[in-house]
């Protein structure tokens, strides 16, 4: 139905009037640079605050490029890839389809932060919610960068690399299968994201304009969550003594629990977590390390804040519970057989 006169948007700035807002944006950019340049070199603040802020910023600066990359890939799959380009290569059988989707990270290698906007983009493109969750959980583990760095860190020692790949694949498909049984999968999404999906279905305009609009939408959704998640991760680092966890390292059961807890709070990027945990390799048993390497990319405090932009609290609680139980069991099995 064509829109009525009253339904038409009243454009305050017609298409040719980019000049004024563009000049305004340029001034804003210059002002930001000037503020940064004129800021004090020394400021006497409490040491605990400095440490918290430095740790928070380090996670944020590390995550930001991956977030931007994830948003760009999200724009690519939503706006630029023609319908059917991805879908035509996926099997019709739901189980096989999810298995293939869990390997999409091999083509779109982004760490867990960037996968959130990308998973949102896949849902907006028409993927089902369980398929998107499968991708979200598998891609941070099953991607070439993570496999190469894990191999560089551990080689084939104790089968850690193989257990990580298998564990990530099985966990992602297990959670995907569980949610595929859900009678109304869209109820797993936050109402606001559901609304955004509905709005996206009817978006018109040039591809470039839609890309800029999509960047705004994803930035608005992800940035506040990223800042809060990074702040939580930074605060935990200052407040929780790591030596308390390391002390549990040689117990077959407690070592798994300790490194799972560390994975939940440390919020380190899956691209480099293998190098980080390598330094604990002599202290912890292989099962604990596998549990760390599988659980960390799936759930941690920063990632949960990001995922909250898309999924309800109830859904995230369930995913966390399943992931913790699965990786705990996986860690114990690895400790038994290695």
């Amino acid at each position: 139905m064509p829109p009525s006169d009253s339904a038409r948007a009243t454009v305050r700035n017609p298409s040719g009037s980019w000049r004024t807002p563009a000049i305004g944006a340029g001034i804003v950019l210059l002002v930001l640079v000037a503020i940064r340049a004129l800021s004090p070199e020394q400021l006497d603040l409490p040491q605990a605050f400095n440490d918290f802020f430095t740790l928070t910023l380090s996670v944020l600066i590390e995550s930001l490029p991956f977030i931007v990359l994830g948003v760009l890939l999200s724009i690519l799959v939503q706006v630029w890839l023609p319908a059917g380009v991805i879908e035509r290569y996926l099997p019709a059988n739901p189980v096989l389809r999810r298995a293939c989707i869990s390997l999409l990270g091999m083509l779109l290698p982004v760490c867990e932060c960037g996968n959130v906007p990308l998973a949102r983009g896949l849902i907006m493109r028409g993927f089902t919610v369980p398929e998107s969750i499968t991708f979200l959980i598998a891609a941070p583990i099953l991607n070439p960068i993570v496999i190469v760095t894990t191999h560089a860190a551990f080689g084939w020692d104790s089968g850690i690399l193989v257990w990580r790949i298998l564990g990530g694949f099985v966990l992602a498909n297990l959670i995907g299968w569980i949610y595929s049984r859900h009678p109304r999968p869209t109820s797993l999404l936050t109402p606001a994201f559901e609304e955004a999906c509905r709005r996206e279905e009817h978006t018109h305009g040039t591809r470039l304009g839609r890309s800029v609009e999509q960047f705004q939408t994803e930035a608005r959704a992800v940035m506040p969550a990223l800042i809060i998640g990074c702040s939580l991760a930074g605060a935990v680092q200052v407040l929780v003594p790591r030596s308390a966890l390391v002390a549990l390292g040689t117990n077959p059961v407690l070592s798994v629990a300790a490194l799972m807890l560390l994975a939940l709070v440390i919020s380190i990027c899956s691209n480099v977590d293998a190098f980080f945990i390598l330094s604990f390799g002599s202290t912890f048993l292989p099962g604990a390390i596998v549990a760390f390497l599988v659980l960390g990319p799936v759930v941690d405090v920063k990632l949960l804040a990001l995922m909250r932009t898309t999924f309800t609290t109830r859904t995230l609680t369930q995913i966390t519970l399943i992931a913790v139980l699965f990786t705990g069991a996986l860690g114990l099995v690895v400790n038994l057989v290695s």
Binding site: P3, A9, T10, P21, L29, V68, V212
Partner: peptide, 20 residues
């Protein structure tokens, strides 16, 4: 990110009539 953010901020604002 700077280029895209400036593009978002520089994009002409569109006002809609809510009585549609």
């Amino acid at each position: 990110a700077v280029v895209l953010s400036v593009a978002v901020l520089a994009r002409p604002r569109v006002r809609h009539d809510h009585h549609h």
